[in-house]
Nucleic acid binder design. Structure first.
Lengths: 110, 110
DNA sequence: GTTTCTAGTTACTTTTTCGTTTCTACTTTA
DNA sequence: TAAAGTAGAAACGAAAAAGTAACTAGAAAC
């Protein structure tokens, strides 16, 4: 993939522009901490493979925190980090534009 | 592609999350009106095919305005619409975050 | 008279991404 | 004893996206 050397915005966008990614952040912001299975059910239609990929990515760039409890069955929860919350806050501006342009569906999801 | 029925934000993001797209908006915002060739040279590395696709898309969702002067050789210029400028303004917040997280390269490009 | 310039278009190939299915370990429940 | 639930991992094929190269018109410059 071609790199944009000049712009940290592009770095960020490359990270979060994959399908489902923003949606996952959004769901975590509106629902708080969620287990893997809960998250999968709320992000309706996503496969476990892609959800895993996205969560690993979001974890690696410190937008999401993963907590693993090695019980049986295992219990893994995901939460937005401070960065994640900050980003989600910024997305509110985009959300406002999008709502104004494309209709004002209720913000509540899930 | 799976649809997210509840969220106009997703509609917007699906439009602008393609590779190069945000970058094109950014370049048009910082440079004003540009001809096709100028734009291609500034968005370094993009092919004419993809640039055309992106501009057609941005035109269709009214973020970019295309002006065609049928001279020979033809002269086509692209400018951000009001919506495009509004979006670009919103991106400033993302830019601020990105800069804080990934380094503070100068905003000026091209 | 051949090359150069503009703003693309078309066909084709390669790369990336996405989805589907199968499998794991171990406990609890029916 | 058999099925269900948890949080994924691995393998594979399909689909989408991106890149590459060749080609267009018609005037101007050399």
């Amino acid at each position: 993939m071609t790199e944009f050397k000049c712009c940290p915005l592009e770095t960020l966008l490359r990270h979060i522009s994959g399908q489902w990614t923003i949606y996952i952040i959004w769901i975590l912001d509106t629902n708080g901490t969620l287990r893997f299975g809960e998250l999968r059910r709320k992000v309706d239609g996503i496969s476990t493979k892609v959800l895993t990929e996205r969560l690993r990515l979001l974890e690696s760039i410190e937008l999401v925190h993963r907590h693993h409890e090695p019980t049986i069955p295992p219990q893994v929860t995901y939460t937005l980090t401070e960065r994640g919350k900050e980003l989600s806050g910024t997305l509110d501006h985009l959300y406002e534009l999008a709502t104004r342009w494309y209709g004002n569906d209720p913000k509540a999801v899930g």
